[in-house]
């Protein structure tokens, strides 16, 4: 029998990918202040400690506000750009879309620093609001990418048919286009939300005194005694992300099934 080298390799690679995540619950339930092997015993005290931390809840609340606003704004911007790019040709199209998609390949540090310099120069005080500004910038390319594929799979003649049957441009959008790209909109919202929730550099530099969850986690790493509670928090977050992603994947697949297109897989 042939040895399935590729399959074994791929499984090995998956282990590499999952290694840190698999360690997370181990340390979260480990009865020791030191994050190292051997494990010493089972405890749930780190979860209790995490739960008792008011600062954590505060930054979590901030994160939800930021991620919620950023995902809605980025998706709205994404709908405009994706619709324009799939439906129309206009002067400077490549340049404009290139600029919108630029944060995808720009180091976040550069985005954060250039924004910071301008915000300080203009005199905008740093707050949650400025984090949202930055996050919309980096989430929009993802939204555009997801929504472009959603709009692309839309047959142009569907719109014309609705128009031909007496609907106006707006009611065509509401009755035909919106329902058909809705799965794309939902997965764009979820993915932008996840990216914003996880984002650190912009939140760190543009947040002023306000901390998001990732900035809070970064701060806690300085205190070894706080690390086990972060492991507990990480475990909770991993479970949450997997739930969100599963929902996103579900909507994406449903969208594909609805329009009868072939499943090409993946978010990007």
């Amino acid at each position: 029998m042939k040895i399935p080298v590729l399959r074994i390799y791929t499984i090995g690679y998956l282990i590499f990918l999952y290694a840190p995540i698999l360690l997370l619950p181990l340390f979260a339930f480990n009865d020791s202040k030191v994050i190292a092997f051997p494990l010493s015993g089972f405890t749930t005290q780190w979860f209790a400690q995490m739960w008792a931390d008011e600062q954590m809840f505060n930054s979590f609340k901030n994160s939800l506000i930021v991620a919620g606003s950023a995902s809605v704004l980025a998706t709205t911007f994404g709908v405009f750009a994706a619709r324009a790019s799939t439906r129309y040709n206009f002067p400077g199209k490549a340049g404009i879309l290139g600029l919108i998609m630029l944060p995808l390949v720009l180091p976040e540090m550069i985005v954060a620093m250039s924004l910071l310099v301008v915000l300080l120069a203009v005199g905008v005080p740093l707050s949650i609001f400025t984090i949202i500004l930055g996050h919309v910038l980096i989430c929009t390319p993802f939204a555009v990418a997801i929504l472009t594929s959603a709009f692309q799979s839309l047959d142009r003649s569907l719109e014309e048919a609705a128009y031909d049957l007496g609907e106006t441009a707006w009611s065509t959008f509401r009755l035909i286009i919106l329902p058909l790209v809705m799965p794309g909109i939902i997965s764009s919202l979820l993915i932008a939300f996840t990216i914003s929730l996880d984002e650190f550099i912009i939140a760190f530099f543009l947040g002023g005194n306000e901390t998001t969850l990732s900035v809070y986690i970064f701060g806690q790493f300085r205190f070894p005694a706080k690390v086990p509670a972060i492991m507990a928090l990480g475990t909770v977050l991993v479970c949450l992300s997997i739930c969100l992603l599963t929902i996103a994947e579900y909507f994406r697949r449903r969208g594909i099934a609805k329009t009868g297109a072939k499943d090409t897989g993946g978010f990007l």
Partner: peptide, 17 residues
Amino acid sequence: ANQRPTNMVFQSYAIFP
């Protein structure tokens, strides 16, 4: 188009999926 007394059968049929 939405106010003309014409209706169309599209090449792709454009059935709303």
